[in-house]
Amino acid sequence: MLAYLIRRLIQAALILLGVSFITFFLLFVLPADPVRQIAGRSATPETVANIRHQLGLDQPFIVQYWHYLTGLVQGDMGRSYLQKTEVATLIAARLPATLLLMLGAIVAELIMGLTLGIVAAIRRGGALDQSLMITSFVAVSAPQFVVGLLLLYVFAVKLSWFPIGGYGSFSNLVLPALTLGIMGSGWYSRMMRSSMIDVLRSDYIRTARAKGLRRFRVLALHAMPNAILPIIAMIGIDIGIFMSGIVVVESVFGWPGIGQLAWQAIQRVDIPIIMGVTLVSACAIVLGNLLADLITPFIDPRIKLR
């Protein structure tokens, strides 16, 4: 177990190294000039050259990358070009909002997905099952920005149940979390349905029924816990999917997280921030996948880690 963990962590470090290299390279060949953004349009060529030199952007690619990497190892993610603040500070200030949003989305997708899946499995083959499965397809096929705008329009503009944007209270969280969670709820309901159907076919459920236990007891205490377990392992993988979603959802709702930070940085060519957010996201994705793999053998002892 320990050897496995160490090997996976080394792999993760190598993957992050690769991600940092590719992102740094992509941003290096970017035609948009960050110095122009900092200096403004009216700057003289001398000022531009000066700023370029100060930021070290006149050095060759490999020198710049080495510089960044050595800083990174010491926990220094560089300074934002435009905000004159440490990138680490900016990200640390925004991260709680994003984590809260993701947590909300996980709760939302589990509640919606598991409920729909269980109901569909119990009513398997019926009209309710079919319409629930169509619903899950719609959830998976809906573009997040449209879902976000629709929820905003119906529940914030028309019904005024929730605020239009903002951050700080539970009511601010509901719509963004639902938007981020809807796609996942579609996947979860399909997985939950087939997991539940498999469990309902198994011998121990037949035994429980044969013992004369009530239907509700069999479903709630024998079938559901076993059907839900394999699905819990998927939450780690969700983190990776959320990392794309937050850029859209945070920009629709004006949610002050790292997705919005990245999106603003991309528009202003603030390279250190783009680098920082990409690396933090990649970290989250790698750790999420690792977590999913680590949980699996606890849930199903038949699976051994290799």
Partner: peptide, 24 residues
């Protein structure tokens, strides 16, 4: 396959946005 693993670790949308910004 290691390269594929590497690509899996990229936040897809951020990567696409960066690429789209590079090529007009």
């Amino acid at each position: 396959m290691r390269f594929t693993d590497l690509m899996m670790a990229f936040p897809a949308l951020l990567l696409a946005i960066c690429l789209a910004a590079i090529f007009t």
